[in-house]
Amino acid sequence: MNITFKDETFRDDYTFSNSEEQIKRFPFPFHEDSYMYSVNMEPHAAVRPGSVFENDFDVDEHYVSEMRDRAKVLDEDPLRCQSLPHMTLAGWDLLELIMTSKAKDYPHWFELHRDGKNWHWINHPLNIEQKFIFGDETTLPYGPLEYITRQTQGDFVLLDQREENLWLEAGMVTTQADWSLDFDIGMNFFEWHAPVPLAHEMGIFQRALKFLLNIQQGTPARRLNWTMTANPLLDTSPENYHKWGKQKLEVTRENVGNKMHLRVELQTFFRLPRSNALVFPIRCYLIKLEELVTIPKWGRRFHRVIRDLPEELATYKGFIDNRPKIVEYLSKYDDGQDTSLGIWPE
């Protein structure tokens, strides 16, 4: 793959944007012209070369800048990465999973040389080279979870499995859509999901939990989730709400196409071999409305989805106040033609 890593920001002057190639591979989450909350899990298997679903861990043109943004967040708030003591083994599991996947899928960027427990990792895009002993924390500059997730796009949540439940007991969370690791750490699956509306009555979480408990080694799963944000801000954490919350008020009829972003989370789930824990990588993709509408099918469909979305979902997703402006903007790109089924551009 021929990618130039972009030099851009996700704060202050917000120079983030997507190249034409990147727009085409955006994980558009709507497979039809309407949206209803569901768990919609599918196997995390490779589909469509070039798409974000091709590899276990997608690396794209935003990689280097996203990692720089993560380092800044961690400088200001080290508690964005935490791991309870019994989760260290799961951290090693994750490090192994990511290093072996990236070295296999992107051999021109990442190299892993192993000789028993002596490992040698080279990350060319970030200019990192590290020799260490697998399983020995003192040979890495950070714990295994923090070390590898400072070099991997997306948030990471490690879930311990016991008592027929999942416990959120370690994570790296700097690009989250409005939830806090520091607040949620130690919670089980139900406590952690408590604030979601509508879905509760559907017993959706019971079924989702059952599904997750049964994810096995070698058969990862995935789903897409979405929301919208004003500005390409990765760190929409509750800790910083006072900084980003007011940016919603800056959206006008004139700037909505540039300022409003569809934010899609590619959520994947892997069983980790050595610890039997689960890892839940949450990868965030951002796209400006004006970029999205360059794909005619997506412009038409997104207009219909946002226009017809139930009020409580628009409120829950945090854009109810800006919805009229968004719908007005998108309506210009909906000529009423039929759209084909499925999420792909055409």
């Binding site: 019994h86 989760m87 311990d160 499995q161 096995q216 070698g218 039997n276």
Partner: peptide, 10 residues
Amino acid sequence: TPVNLFSLDL
């Protein structure tokens, strides 16, 4: 592929 239904509580 291995499956663990008798896992240690760490």
